[in-house]
Write a protein that binds this DNA or RNA. Structure first.
Lengths: 115, 115
DNA sequence: ATATATCGTTTCGTATCCGTTATATTCTAG
DNA sequence: CTAGAATATAACGGATACGAAACGATATAT
């Protein structure tokens, strides 16, 4: 992957977007994708408050994103035993797999776009 | 931009997603983004039927995407004079600008991710 | 202990979106 | 010129998202 120009980058973005649309799982909103990626890329622990602050969105956005992605098994919730007001967001096997596939998708398309 | 690994690609995806969320304009759905990019990256002419076929979605999805993005001035519609059943989708200045900024966004973040 | 602050969720009203199906318009074949 | 096909859109019903505000539960401070 060397030196993708603007056109190639946009092509890449489209290819990946299209792939996400065609995937059987309902596509995540941009907000949800941001939340999911942050949970998996940034070091834990993750709280609702913390995620909302980091992503500059309101707390209900996080709660609802966790609801949706929890149903999809992409993340899990657990109460913080230290401070029971907090919710600790946890990664899951399915979530890791999902992002692994996403990375592979992007990677493959970035190769392809160069041809 | 050389050799982005999986983690870096995902970081890039998150950064751009976050930027899109924070942008004042309401964020497009993944479907809408696919449509918009196809209109600007593939050679014209573009019709509703053609876009639906190319993206493997139903025609109403395209119609509605054009409604929304038309309101946002990102695309324009015009009847095909040759065959008045067809709608020709046209690019706009605002749309070009939007994608130019998106490309720049992706490009900048791809630099940053390497640091 | 009691008031206050913090945290996550719920609720409310609004605005989309999606897929399916039905419809109006336009073209084409016979 | 009329029956049928093709095109885009509208209408319907269900699902979901959003922001703002209100709410319970828990912790903290005085």
């Amino acid at each position: 992957m060397t030196e993708l120009n603007s056109g190639q980058l946009l092509n890449l973005w489209r290819d990946v977007s299209m792939a996400l649309v065609h995937d059987e799982s309902p596509d995540l909103t941009t907000r949800q994708m941001s939340v999911l990626l942050t949970i998996y890329l940034d070091p834990p622990p993750h709280t609702v408050r913390g995620l909302a602050a980091k992503l500059h969105v309101t707390k209900p956005v996080i709660t609802r994103a966790l609801d949706t992605m929890g149903r999809m098994k992409l993340v899990a919730r657990r109460r913080d035993p230290e401070d029971r007001r907090n919710v600790i967001v946890q990664r899951t096997v399915d979530g890791s797999l999902y992002l692994e596939k996403l990375a592979e998708l992007i990677s493959n398309f970035s190769q392809e776009v160069l041809k």
